[in-house]
Nucleic acid binder design. Structure first.
Length: 260
DNA sequence: ATGCCCGAGAACCTCGGA
């Protein structure tokens, strides 16, 4: 089973890149973030025409998350449990493998937070607290759980191109890294880092100042696997191909492959 | 210096992103 996560920064603008990527890579489940469109505008037919099913929760202008899957997913949830929030940042569903194993997949667009002294950071902390509770429950219910998405936190200095410049800043602060560690203490593992110990590997690069060409990036898009799924993971990689295209998203896909 | 670029929505600028 191949799972991928990609913050597309407007599905309207990136649709052709996404359908091309699906055709070329044939994942079982592609998890999208930052759709920036309403459910009425979602391009179901474009995905259907290349053999993919869609589940999504969107809103005008901001946020929005979706599953694009080779087979229908079940047990859909589009709200972070126990958190009343109009922002469309959470979607979860079950994938049934060819062997009949059920995999719980949770796809998130975590809050940015803006800065540590912002009201938006209070919201980020609260949102992560609720996500942690939900993941604890999910992993107990089904040990075969994968949490993917744009976390808007670098796990460590190795995931930041310039730790001195970013020290204490949003995405790279100690408090955010503790929040991520607490979430992962529910039994989740950084799948890319398991296979790749080297630095200078990122999933996001600023549009400004030719950030991609200089490889000035952050690794904030993660695939977190439960221990049961870590026992089945074959490989995990970042695919920089879409970041080199004209009019790219500022993020690029992260992919993991499992034997299930 | 909190900008440089980008997308969306309402106008030709502001907001939010990371």
């Amino acid at each position: 089973m191949k799972i991928a996560s990609w913050n597309v920064n407007s599905l309207r603008v990136r649709l052709e890149q996404v359908t091309d990527w699906l055709t070329n890579n044939q994942p079982d489940v592609l998890c999208l973030q930052e759709l920036k469109m309403t459910d009425e505008e979602f391009p179901i037919e474009a995905f259907k025409s290349i053999g993919y099913h869609s589940l999504f929760t969107g809103q005008k202008t901001y946020n929005g998350v979706a599953f694009i899957s080779s087979r229908p997913l079940t047990n859909l949830i589009t709200d972070l449990p126990n958190f009343d929030d109009p922002m469309r940042r959470y979607i979860a569903a079950d994938f049934k493998s060819e062997k009949g194993e059920i995999i719980r997949i949770v796809n998130v667009y975590c809050p940015n937070g803006q800065s540590l002294d912002s009201d938006k950071f209070v919201y980020k902390r609260e949102w992560f607290r609720k996500l942690q509770d939900a993941m604890g429950t999910d992993i107990k219910t089904n040990p075969n759980t994968v949490l993917v998405g744009d976390f808007n936190i670098t796990p460590g200095d190795i995931d930041c191109h310039d730790p001195l410049k970013w020290a204490g800043k949003i995405h790279c602060s100690d408090i955010e890294r503790l929040i991520l560690q607490k979430l992962m203490s529910e039994g989740l593992f950084d799948t890319f880092r398991h296979f790749h110990k080297e630095g200078d590997r990122y999933s996001w690069w600023d549009y400004r100042g030719a950030g991609y060409r200089a490889n000035e990036g952050l690794r904030i898009d993660l695939i977190l696997s439960s221990s049961a799924m870590m026992n089945k993971v074959q490989n995990c990689w970042i695919d920089e191909t879409p970041r080199k295209l004209d009019r790219p998203s500022d993020h690029t896909p992260v992919v993991a492959e499992y034997t299930v």
